[in-house]
Write a protein that binds this DNA or RNA. Structure first.
Lengths: 194, 194
DNA sequence: CGGGGTCTTGATCTCAATCAACCAATGTGG
DNA sequence: CCACATTGGTTGATTGAGATCAAGACCCCG
């Protein structure tokens, strides 16, 4: 139980990669590491529809409809494992727990769309760094693409870029690296802004 | 089955009234008519956390935790009935369906926080009028309090007031009455804005 | 008849969107 | 190995939608 038995059917997806597409078939997955963005196919392209953290189950609707309702994208490098590989049914207690999680999650995601640009971005990053893969605590968090941050917080990419630079400059966020390899320190996310 | 058998333990709540408070005990409910706003107790007062329409179940988390996680308020006059009055357990299929609904709902609520003020308000009202009590189709929709519309769409009350007046003036929304008794025609909500 | 909650309207200001270039990194194929 | 395209990120100038502040009108309730 302690060690991973060969990581049988686990999948790894790079930052920005697609995990599955809406309308296709496949199993439900449990997120082991990373953050997942769920999108709904709207009349005007994809539209942000939810986030999943390590521990969350994504694509549970396939058990009901046989197809994925959303498109899943990796915000950061992700590892996922099949959920309910056999033909076992989830217990009512499990499902109730997932429902309660989904409802609490809704409140958190909603809060990523109110307040100033700085507050939204800080909240999103703090949210992503809240739950890391069990055991090892990530000291630094790889930033998602600005495009993704913008979609989630309902800001423009330009504003996201400027705001992160600004937060870093005023010391409210410790930023390392530039461009695609940028990271922020988890510690600076936990303390409230000055 | 066709007629309501005395409406045993059903409750009715007026617009703006509280259905239950977070932290208290009680059963889960099924919304029969009206729209419900769910709030989470945040560090800075209540914070909008979700919406429930006729057919939705609210407070299902009591089956797991024994207490309500959210505070429920009636946006419009509401009727609710106890869900699972006896000690019966919901089936896995039912719970999976509720989970899928919650996830789809999340996408819709998120869309109430993007776009212009006019688009957000139109979307919210269309959303509320989408599902009415089975059978009779409401021709007109009673408006929620502006304060509630503002919280849900992340706008200010002043902007909501101005925008509704404006939408009415340009014919994009048919508005009847003023002040607390204001209503909009459901038909004008369904057709896209000119 | 007050009084508090709700709604309206006006004047002003600000934060973020938009438009427009421009870099930096990564691929791709000849 | 080098042109070239593509995607992702940055920066600047300008503009506008909505926030904010302020005041008053309306309505319901005790």
């Amino acid at each position: 139980m302690k060690d991973d038995p060969g990581a049988s059917a686990n999948r790894c997806i790079a930052r920005g990669g697609e995990i599955y597409a809406a309308g296709t078939e496949g199993p439900a997955w449990r997120v082991v590491a990373g953050t997942v963005r769920l999108d709904e196919a709207g009349p005007e392209g994809r539209q942000f529809a939810g986030l999943a953290l390590p521990g969350d189950v994504i694509g549970a609707e396939t058990l009901l409809f046989g197809r994925y309702s959303f498109t899943a994208l990796a915000l950061s490098a992700c590892e996922i494992e099949p959920w309910l590989a056999g033909h076992e049914q989830p217990s009512g207690e499990t499902l109730l727990g997932m429902l309660a999680t989904a409802e609490r999650r809704m409140a958190q995601i909603l809060s990523l769309r109110s307040g100033t640009a700085g507050e939204r971005i800080r909240r999103l990053l703090a949210f992503m760094s809240a739950r890391v893969a069990d055991g090892r605590r990530a000291v630094r968090l790889a930033l998602p693409r600005l495009r993704d941050i913008a979609d989630i917080t309902d800001l423009s990419v330009e504003t996201v870029s400027r705001t992160i630079t600004h937060l870093g400059a005023e010391g409210s966020l410790e930023v390392y690296g530039r461009y695609r390899t940028r990271q922020v320190s988890a510690a600076s996310l936990r303390r409230p802004k000055p």
